[in-house]
Nucleic acid binder design. Structure first.
Lengths: 159, 159
DNA sequence: GCGATATGATTGACGTGTCAATCAGCGAAG
DNA sequence: CTTCGCTGATTGACACGTCAATCATATCGC
């Protein structure tokens, strides 16, 4: 079934349009879920944990200001705060006071956190290759890049 | 930047591959979030509420067995149970006992639930058109359909 | 210096999702 | 008929996310 099957830019959605929309959203979500489950099995980390530890692992001294970390991974500050609380309880990161600004907090990856992150990396990237990259031809990968770019352009800017 | 820029099917991910992967996942999630926020503004419903009410609205007598509903929208049973509890509290659905099987429960959309659903439908479909369909050429829409199909084929089957 | 305001970060309340455990009713084996 | 297992559905514990409120510290205007 292709776009030649029905009228397209009218006011209402054709079954094909609706199905394609749903397929897009649901496939992305299922991929996320499968990757997340594998990550958890391999390393005990969630996707959020992985994102935080990745950012910290790339930072000077494995540490970042909380606000810089939030900006880097594009999370809301309160989301990060809650998540860091959970990660701290599990010993993956630690919070330290900031020297030059007493309001600020610095987040540091612990040895345990870095260890879990290293354990996660290779299987995680392998899973991305297997479930996503290997499924697509080079042309399809380019199409994904192009399509996500035009979709992003339409998205309202985020505060 | 295209696939001609670097080696592609080696063991590790190129920056292009990684960026395209991330763009795919993040764009889909941002789209979901924006659509969900609009839905909430327009009708006070969440995406979950919408999915449940859509299924009920298409069912005989606006009612379904709980298990049939779960299968229809592809949700885990416990997820549905929790969600129905919240929807029931808000008066969007009601649960009734099933006549032929005393274990079973039937879920019915209330008048209030159907009203909210009708209020949601048009703006929701319009948002899908604006943010997704109108952003893509017919060829790009076909590409999405094709790409999601091949990705789904790789996904492990769900229990 | 001091008061108003802005900024960094946390908190509480609540909706959402998963997993494992539970419970009640149904139905077949004996 | 009763016991055992299967099925429909719910529950509790907990992870995750958002929103609005809060709190402490910095900083600006005077």
């Amino acid at each position: 079934m292709t776009h030649t099957t029905g009228a397209r830019s009218g006011r209402w959605l054709t079954p094909y349009e609706l199905a394609t929309w749903r397929a897009f959203i649901e496939t992305a979500e299922q991929l996320r879920n499968v990757l997340g489950a594998r990550l958890r099995e391999d390393s005990g980390l969630s996707e959020g944990d992985y994102a935080v530890l990745l950012a910290l692992s790339e930072a000077e001294g494995r540490r970042l200001r909380s606000s810089a970390l939030a900006a880097h991974i594009d999370w809301e500050r309160s989301r990060l705060s809650h998540h860091l609380g959970r990660m701290e309880r599990r010993g993956l990161i630690a919070r330290e006071e900031c020297e030059d600004d007493n309001r600020g907090a610095e987040v540091v990856a612990t040895a345990e956190g870095m260890s879990a992150f290293r354990r996660a990396t290779v299987p995680h990237l392998r899973a991305v290759r297997e479930l996503f990259l290997d499924a697509l031809t080079p042309e399809q990968l380019d199409a994904v890049a192009e399509i996500t770019a035009v979709l992003r352009d339409r998205l309202p800017p985020r505060p």
